[in-house]
Structures are given as C-alpha cells and as structure tokens.
Nucleic acid binder design. Structure first.
Lengths: 211, 211
DNA sequence: CTCATTGTAGAGCGATCGCTCAATAAGTTG
DNA sequence: CAACTTATTGAGCGATCGCTCTACAATGAG
C-alpha cells in the first residue's frame, strides 16, 4: 500500500502546472468569456484534445484556475492576514496595504481575478458568474465573522456595525482592484488604503487605534 | 433657414429612443461583448438592417448608449451633486448615498453601466474597454478638481491629500457598484456610505464636519 | 402619375466559438 | 515481442458571432 502506482500509457508531454499557470494569466487578464480556447491552447502550448483530456471543458479549467489562484500568494493574502494578525484593525490595515502593493504589480495582470474575471457574461455562462459571486460573498462572510469576534472581544465598540464594516472593506478592496485595472499604481493605492483605514470606528476619543 | 426640413423617404417604424433604451438595459445587464446582436435586435424589436441604418455598428450603438446613460438620472447624479452642493463634503456624502439608493434599484440593472459594462473584453474590442476606462478616469479628475478647490477654499485642511481622497471616493463608488451587482441592497449600501464618509479628513478636533 | 430617397424584411455571408473524433505515438505490462 | 493504456495530433463538427445584401415597402418631390 502507499504504492504510488506506475503511470500507465503514454506520459504527458507538457507540465500540467505550468499550463495551468498560463491559463490563469489569460483568464486573469481578459476574463472568462473573452478568453478563447484558441488563445488558451496557444498559451498553454497544447492542442484542444490534450486540454480536454487534462482539464475537462473550459468551465472546469477555469474553476481549477480559480482554485490555484486562491492558493497562490496573490490570492491568499487576505486569509493569511486574518489568521496572522492579532487584531482586526491590524488585519484589515495589512490587507488593504497588501492589496495596494499586489493589485498593480506588473509581474501579473492587474487587480484580483476573483473580482474581475466574470463581471460580463452571457446567459449560458451565468453559472461561472454565480460561482465567482458566491466566492466573493463567502469572503464577505469571513470579514463579518472576524469583525463580530472583534466586537465581542471589545476591540470594536458596541455601537459599531460589524456587517456594515465588513461590507465597507469588501467595497474598498473591490474598488481598489478596479482602480488597479484602470491604471492606478501602488503609491496611489497605498494612499487610498490609508484613507480607508481612517474610517475605522472609535477613533473619536484619542485616535489611539488598537495597534 | 431654420426650416426643420421635411423628412424624405420612408419614415422609421420604430421609436429610436425606446429602442436605444432597450439596448441600454441589455448592455447594462450583460456588458458589451456578452450582449449579442441577436439579443439586441430582439429586445429593440427591429431587424439587423434597421439597427445598422439607425445606429451604425455594435460599437457605435454602445457608445451612443453610454452617452444616453450619462444623460439619464441614473448616470448623471454625480455631476449634479457636485454642481448643486455648496461644500465638497456635502457633495460626496450625497453622491455616496444616492449611489447606495440607485445602484441596487430593481427598476434597472444593478450597479453602474460605465463601471461594469466592459471589464472583460477580447483583444479586438479593447477600444471599448479603453473608452470606458477613460470615462472613469475623467470622472476621477473631476473629483480631484473639486477636492483641490475645497482645499484652496479652506474646507479641506492643508495636510489633506486631494488626489488620494479623489481616488478613495472613486474606489468606494466602484466598489459599491460591484457590491450592488453581487446582491447588496440599499440599506446595506447606505450603511457602507456612512462608514466611508467617516474617513473624511480633519475630523480630529471636534468631529464637526462642514455641514 | 414617375422618380428619388429612406426603411424594413429576411436570407445568409465569412469568421470564430467551444468542442469532438479517428489516427497515430509513446509509454507499461506480460 | 504483442497487448493494453493513455496522450497527441490535426481535421473539422454544429452553432453562433457581427454584419451585409437584395428585394420590396413607404414616404415626399416634381
């Protein structure tokens, strides 16, 4: 047992992960529908038959791309910050500043794949739009949870509204992704991140945020 | 002179404005590329030949739709608020709250057409994406100008950064449009608008905003 | 009336879309 | 070696894309 099992039949002639990365870049840059099978096979260096054998149809390839993206450094920074930072304030401040640095980074397409890859979609691909929307709304729930516990722990004042705050950060992050796609650079986005954090509640008395 | 000129030839059998409105709804809901000529002609109640005679090709139809949108109540509220409100603070507060009410309004597709109609686009339609991006960036400049004069007039403290503030409001508005498309309702967006206005600078001393 | 002008209707153009399939190649197994 | 299994190749499927063209209808001008 535990035997890996010798691979049978003709071995693959391409690197599956590398091909997936190329597909990710295309979907990330152009979005789901605007990326054609022709462009995909060319970028991945394979023929349609190989693509369908290795990844299934375009839909499932895209979903696998999204999962790979979520596991990548660019896609995972939000969850990591929420896990590592001791306070909600520090977590969201870090998230916004990392987004400001990552979204316009020229080493990959601008903005967040999850936010922008399926905003315009035909009826027959509505499933893909719903798939990404659910992902975004799930992320919103994670924000909500973190802020609710922050309130229970006393970091947030009782008068604060965790749900509105979660929506606010989701809005700022999605807006920053859009602005990065419109050409905003890291410096501009960092200034925006600072502005956005100024809305953190309970700054009234002494402006001493739970640092 | 001044003669309107009697229309020659066979008169049009459809209402051009009504047809344009139908095209707007489709582009607004699905985006530029995801809306097909087939859907357009069906929704507008005309045949392809009539569409091309009256509006030119798909590109120019879309551009005319965008101009009509900008003149509509849904598309023009930002400019109106900037013109009517005496202070920048009141203008942006009004803009955010109107966006919160308008973007999720069920009487039309969610969000802002200018923001979401061409985020994913193939290479051959890149011109359309650039067209909308330029529109968004022009709007950002309007924000910047308004905030710069607010600073010159003393409404904004000297330490404030009008450029960052303009980018911040652009981010919040674009994010609110996205959230509306993801299903956020007017109540939720209004709470977010309140949160966002709390970032307005120079709230330090007495929290008395220039109301 | 005839003529010129404009609009409509419907068929269908070439190109591209996502995708499939038969033939062949390249491995392991016995 | 032959048998089996899987991958690659390249042609090409039906459907849809944006768009055009021809035949005909409806108006005003003369």
């Amino acid at each position: 047992m535990g035997q890996t099992g010798a691979p049978r039949g003709r071995p693959r002639t391409f690197d599956r992960d590398a091909a997936l990365t190329q597909a990710m870049r295309l979907f990330w840059e152009r979005g789901y529908e605007a990326t054609s099978l022709n462009e995909l096979t060319e970028a991945m260096g394979i023929r349609p038959g190989s693509l369908y054998a290795a990844f299934g149809d375009k839909r499932s390839l895209f979903k696998e791309v999204v999962h790979a993206y979520a596991r990548s450094s660019v896609g995972a920074f939000i969850g990591i910050a929420l896990k590592e930072e001791p306070t909600a304030f520090r977590a969201f401040a870090r998230i916004l500043h990392q987004a400001a640095a990552i979204y316009p980074d020229p080493s990959h397409p601008a903005g967040c794949l999850t936010i922008s890859a399926a905003t315009n979609v035909t009826v027959q691909d509505a499933e893909i739009a719903v798939f990404l929307r659910d992902l975004r709304n799930a992320n919103l729930m994670v924000f909500h949870d973190r802020l609710r516990t922050a309130q229970q722990e006393g970091e947030l004042p009782p008068g604060a509204d965790p749900r509105a705050l979660a929506g606010y950060f989701a809005v700022v992050i999605q807006g920053m992704s859009q602005r990065a796609r419109d050409g905003a650079d890291a410096t501009e986005l960092a200034a925006i991140a600072d502005m956005a954090m100024a809305a953190w509640p309970e700054a009234e008395p002494g402006r001493s945020s739970p640092n």
